[in-house]
Design a protein around this nucleic acid. Structure first.
Ligand SMILES: [Zn+2]
Ligand SMILES: [Zn+2]
Ligand SMILES: [Zn+2]
Ligand SMILES: [Zn+2]
Lengths: 128, 128
DNA sequence: ATGATTTTGCGAATCGTTCGCAAATAAGGC
DNA sequence: GCCTTATTTGCGAACGATTCGCAAAATCAT
């Protein structure tokens, strides 16, 4: 049974996420809490992030090293992200035509696109 | 100093990759070798995969669980992949306009697209 | 406040991956 | 082939991120 208890650790973790609008690892969040003198265990950070993710408040992303990172983000309405390699800043991107995306990113965000990943998932002919 | 020694473990690992044209984890490759009575240590599997990747013969991909998987694939000429959720079959996809991609996947590969991931990387306005 | 339920902290366990080092193997020259 | 040298291998230990078990603490409803 899930109960959405309002607890101090949950508020503190949400606070860190709200203050830092980019993808953070559990360890980074834990460190930020320590610096704020908030004594929250790493286990609780993990459990709270999973809780927030299951509520749809947080998006999880695997970084290039395969580590999980988390950010406040509504995945309900499907979209993608433009992530700055330098500072980690995240801008939302809808998926219109790919050809126009680079141009649009530069025009609307001043974002200089220099790389992208795409992956298509579905069912192949012989598996249908 | 890198020397490209030709060894039995390397040939056997490449053989597994050649026989199975989809993304395989180190553990899967190791298991395939065991079944073929090839005694190769898991460490060597990892080291050989990294060696092949650095040579540009193998592409690495993090699956949804964050595990590394590997496939023979030339990343030199930039492209993407359509991966079957059922059998793991991989088809190459070039990055033309995204709008036409779903249609093209169906027409040319019989691939029924039902999901995709994209990520854009670059430098944001304030970091330039 | 009381009791039922959930969450937390702690440490141990797990899993994939990497590392250190001695033994085995490959390449090159004789 | 044989020797020398550089590289690779196997093994087990170490590692880092994540998960788990369980008793203690916190939350909520009455
Ligand atoms: Zn930036
Ligand atoms: Zn999309
Ligand atoms: Zn298939
Ligand atoms: Zn591309």
């Amino acid at each position: 049974m899930r109960a959405d208890y309002v607890t101090r650790p949950r508020e503190q973790i949400a606070g860190v996420l709200r203050a830092e609008p980019r993808f953070l690892s559990a360890a980074e969040i834990h460190r930020a809490l320590e610096q704020a003198s908030a004594r929250v265990s790493l286990s609780t950070v993990y459990r709270t992030l999973e809780y927030l993710r299951s509520k749809g408040d947080v998006t999880e992303r695997l970084d290039e090293a395969g580590e999980s990172t988390f950010m406040l983000c509504e995945p309900a309405h499907h979209h993608h992200h433009a992530i700055c390699r330098v500072c980690g800043r995240v801008d939302d991107v809808s998926c219109a035509a790919l050809g126009q995306i680079a141009e649009s990113l530069r025009a609307t965000l001043g974002f200089e696109l220099d790389g992208h990943n795409m992956e298509f998932l579905g069912t192949c002919r012989s598996c249908r």
